[in-house]
Structure formats: structure tokens, C-alpha cells
Simulated assay, not measured.
Amino acid sequence: MIIASRFWTNLFSARKARAITIFPFIFLYKKEDKQDKVLINHERIHLAQALELLVIPFYMLYLSEFLIRFLLSFDFNKAYYSISFEKEAFANEENLSYLKSRKLWRFWKYI
């Protein structure tokens, strides 16, 4: 389910994201972003990652990986773009058929 909500995107991303996925929802900063197929595909990749890790462990790993990378660099953007889940999503967001052929636990390739 896709929902336009500035509240949730601001709350969970420190006002830095256009979209955020909180399983099973995709929250968009702007209603117009519903038409952005690349952005939606990026977020759907996160839904697949969360589902294969049974949701709660996905968020625990995501946050842990972010915190470790942030403590190593003290750079929010560097830490964010270094998260394996984000690396997979960014690398494949323009491939709109990626999820049809995505292999299980594919994010491990990006660690």
C-alpha cells in the first residue's frame, strides 16, 4: 500500500527521504511521487528484503548497519549509502522487472 504522508517520511528519515518503507506500507513525501516508477521500485525492493528477513530482523539489521557505518564515518549520507539494503535497491531501482528475477537474500552481494 502506498501512502503520501510527510509526517512518516520526516519522522523516520530526519527529513532526508522522498519515501520510506515501513512494512507493508510505502510512505511518500509527495502525492506526485506515486507516479515515479523508479522510486516506487526502490521501495518495493525494500519490501522484498523485509519480507525475506521476516520484517523485524530486517529493520534491526538495517538500523544496526546504519549505526555501525555512521560511527565509523560520522557522516549521515555516507552511512546511509553504505547500507547493503540501500546498495541493492539503488543498484536495481531502474530495472523495473528486477523483483521478478531477484534471488533470495540478494542484499548479501552488497555487503
Rank of each mutant, 00 (worst) to 15 (best):
I2L: 05
A4C: 11
F7N: 03
F7C: 06
F7D: 05
T9G: 03
T9I: 04
L11G: 09
F12I: 05
F12L: 09
R15P: 06
R15E: 12
A17P: 09
A17E: 11
I20E: 02
I20K: 01
I20Y: 03
T21M: 00
I22G: 01
I22W: 02
F23C: 06
L28N: 00
K31Q: 14
E32V: 08
E32H: 08
E32N: 11
D36T: 11
D36E: 08
K37I: 08
K37F: 07
L39K: 00
I40K: 03
I40Y: 10
N41H: 06
H42F: 03
H46Y: 02
L47V: 14
A50I: 07
A50V: 09
L53H: 11
V55Q: 01
I56N: 06
P57G: 07
Y59N: 04
L61V: 12
L63V: 14
S64E: 09
S64A: 11
E65D: 15
F66I: 02
F70K: 03
L71W: 04
L72A: 14
L72Q: 15
S73C: 13
S73M: 13
D75E: 11
D75C: 01
K78Y: 09
A79M: 10
A79K: 05
I83H: 09
F85M: 01
F85L: 04
E86V: 03
K87S: 03
A89H: 03
F90A: 09
F90I: 14
F90P: 07
N92Q: 12
E93P: 05
S97C: 09
S101F: 10
S101Y: 12
R102L: 05
L104S: 12
W105D: 10
W105K: 13
W105R: 13
W108A: 11
K109E: 14
I111Y: 13
